[in-house]
């Protein structure tokens, strides 16, 4: 169902939701506003990283780990790919519930959550490795900026996983009927946003060399 049909349906008299001035769904306008706001949130974090990525000296003046030394590009490429593909499964879940195919909806919701969890697992592994190599949140400005940026992104993914699992549970209990496809669409918008933030991070943080 397109949003227009959605709007038309909601515009029909007798429906529980009041018609809106623009015909656009309230929750969806709210969600896009929130995502617009998140652009500034991650913008500030990425800016801090770009400013600090070359500042790798330790507090005692000794050279500390540099981006080029710690980043494991093949590993991060794979986990980036995993997150990218979770966007596909997310949108497939939405397509499934919009056609009323609740079995598929559950399969894709769960797959998306698992792909997200895989990504988070990769991040935990990456963080552990970096700490072992001497890069921590307090080792250098580069360390602070890296961990706080990717950490906040990871926190966003984790919140997304919780929402996906909640949807999955609701669907299992029969409490996610086709009329609630919009809820899946909203979680989807959030999930895709977290994915595009990673697309930017993957390029600006990992691939573009810092020297």
């Amino acid at each position: 169902m397109t949003v227009e049909e959605h709007a038309l349906e909601h515009a029909a008299p007798g429906h529980h939701e009041a018609r809106t001035s623009t015909g656009l769904d309230n929750v969806k306008v709210g969600m896009w506003s929130f995502l617009a706001s998140e652009c500034l949130f991650f913008g500030a974090l990425i800016t801090t990283y770009l400013l600090y990525r070359g500042r790798t000296l330790l507090a005692n003046g000794q050279p500390g780990p540099t981006p080029a030394e710690v980043y494991d590009i093949p590993f991060t490429s794979v986990s980036s790919f995993v997150l990218l593909m979770s966007s596909l499964t997310m949108v497939l879940a939405l397509a499934a519930i919009q056609r009323g195919d609740h079995g598929r909806t559950r399969v894709w919701l769960l797959t998306t959550a698992l792909l997200g969890a895989t990504f988070i697992g990769g991040q935990v592994y990456e963080f552990t490795t970096f700490v072992n190599e001497g890069l921590s949140i307090s080792s250098s400005p580069f360390g602070s900026a890296f961990f706080v940026l990717t950490g906040f992104h990871g926190a966003h993914v984790t919140v997304g996983i919780l929402m996906l699992l909640t949807l999955f549970g609701l669907s299992m209990g029969g409490r996610l009927p086709t009329e609630n496809a919009r809820t899946v669409e909203m979680v989807g918008l959030y999930w895709h946003f977290v994915d595009i933030v990673w697309i930017v991070i993957f390029t600006l943080v990992y691939l573009i060399p810092s020297e």
Partner: peptide, 11 residues
Amino acid sequence: AVFFNPAAGGD
């Protein structure tokens, strides 16, 4: 963290 700590290279 050392974001704003000039002694450790922050700004």
